[in-house]
Design a protein around this nucleic acid. Structure first.
Lengths: 232, 232
DNA sequence: TTGTAGCATCTTCCATGGAAGTTACAATGC
DNA sequence: GCATTGTAACTTCCATGGAAGATGCTACAA
């Protein structure tokens, strides 16, 4: 699981660039830096206790991720995340995760069973959290389900793409998690995905994964659009 | 077309990092640096007539793209592109381009007509090139078709993902283009995609785009696997 | 011959200084 | 008062030097 496309090349050691990248991403995702806010690399370096070079390199990566924009000789501006951006992100999720489910369903029966067990376990964990009203735990179980799904498909590039869109999606989730209803709807959908994978039904798995995400999008997107024009 | 996710923030001016990134990518794609070959940043800086900092930052980006690996304190090694990698790349293409076709087919009729005209024009250009035996021109028209398709769907994140996987796919294409047969098979498939988009048939467009890429994969992948175990 | 310790040499990584460029504001001319 | 120009204070961008670490070679001992 640790070979190939991973970013940090050594196991325990993270370079200062990597640490800065993660720290900045966290700051942006948690709304510490509001979108549109302009900062300088110097300021970031001071705040993170490092020098300007790692900050600069981390900002280049964040710009690739679409989290900020580097204006040459002017500064760094945090990118806003408009409803259209959220819609785009959902489209990527629908495309990738649907195909991931199809791939997972076409793996050998043994691997499918292992994955389906894991998926069912996360769904059960989510159900328990939901019954207890523990929304944080519910969110973790939900994230674990989808992470397991995309990891279980065996395509590392899918994992990579999903990771970057998930980082962006997280920024929107911070807002929407407060107002979502119909959270229990995810449970039967998750179970259907797991069952299709277990049975090796390729098309059914893909359809179920898609339907699940499309339904979530149709729930969330109007809420975001109603909330005001521009966002996080 | 120039707003949003683009990398180089200013129009004409490209930073030295950007230039180095593109130059290195070209060198790798064209096989100038064979996979597995180890180089140092110093060496690259000398060769490209710049200093080590831009090379370092460009290499970080290339590592994200999966083109090379930075081994801390040891050097830079060009990543090999195994048949499994090619298979992964095809899966991404199938997922994204299929969904792009669906998105394109669900746009307003006017936009669909413009896009379909463009697609048909590229298909015709490809047919002409094929009849003339001009394989380079055929490849350009083919690339233009698929670029137009993903640009025409209106999702900039799709464009971005396709661009990175296309860069990697290009490395494989350099090899396979010599031995592919059945090149004329693409023509009716391209026309079917364009027709479905023009008609606004969402599911048909997605299916056609997928079938096209799946067929291409099934043609190419065995050729690559037969050619030897490890590759470019 | 084999094993080991030490060193020389390579590498990336990061801090820092200066160059190039943008912006905002104040001073000056009308 | 208003426009214009010069300048000062920022910014990113890149070159370079030193630090930390990995590797391979050589010398030496058993």
């Amino acid at each position: 699981m640790k070979t190939g496309l991973q970013v940090s090349p050594c196991e325990g050691r993270v370079s200062r660039v990597e640490a800065t990248y993660l720290a900045l991403k966290l700051l942006i995702c948690n709304g510490e830096f509001p979108p549109g806010h302009q900062v300088s690399e110097q300021e970031l370096a001071l705040r993170l206790g490092t020098s300007r070079t790692p900050v600069h390199e981390a900002c280049l990566r964040l710009q690739e991720d679409g989290m900020l924009r580097i204006l040459p000789k002017k500064g760094i501006v945090i990118s806003p995340l408009s409803p259209d951006d959220i819609a785009e992100i959902f489209e990527v999720i629908i495309a990738i995760e649907g195909r991931a489910a199809a791939l997972a369903a076409s793996r050998p029966a043994e691997a499918r069973a292992v994955l389906a067990d894991q998926l069912d376990a996360e769904t059960m964990r989510m159900q328990t959290a939901l019954a207890a009203g523990d929304m944080a735990e519910r969110g973790l179980a939900d994230a674990a389900f989808h992470l397991a799904l995309v990891e279980g498909c065996g395509n590392r590039r899918f994992e990579r793409i999903m990771q970057t869109v998930n980082d962006q999606y997280h920024r929107a989730r911070v807002i929407t998690v407060r107002m979502r209803q119909r959270l229990e709807q995810s449970l039967p959908e998750h179970r259907e995905i797991a069952a299709a994978i277990r049975a090796g039904s390729v098309e059914q798995a893909e359809t179920a994964a898609r339907v699940h995400r499309i339904r979530a999008r149709n729930d969330i997107l109007p809420l975001i659009r109603d909330l005001g024009l521009r966002h996080l």
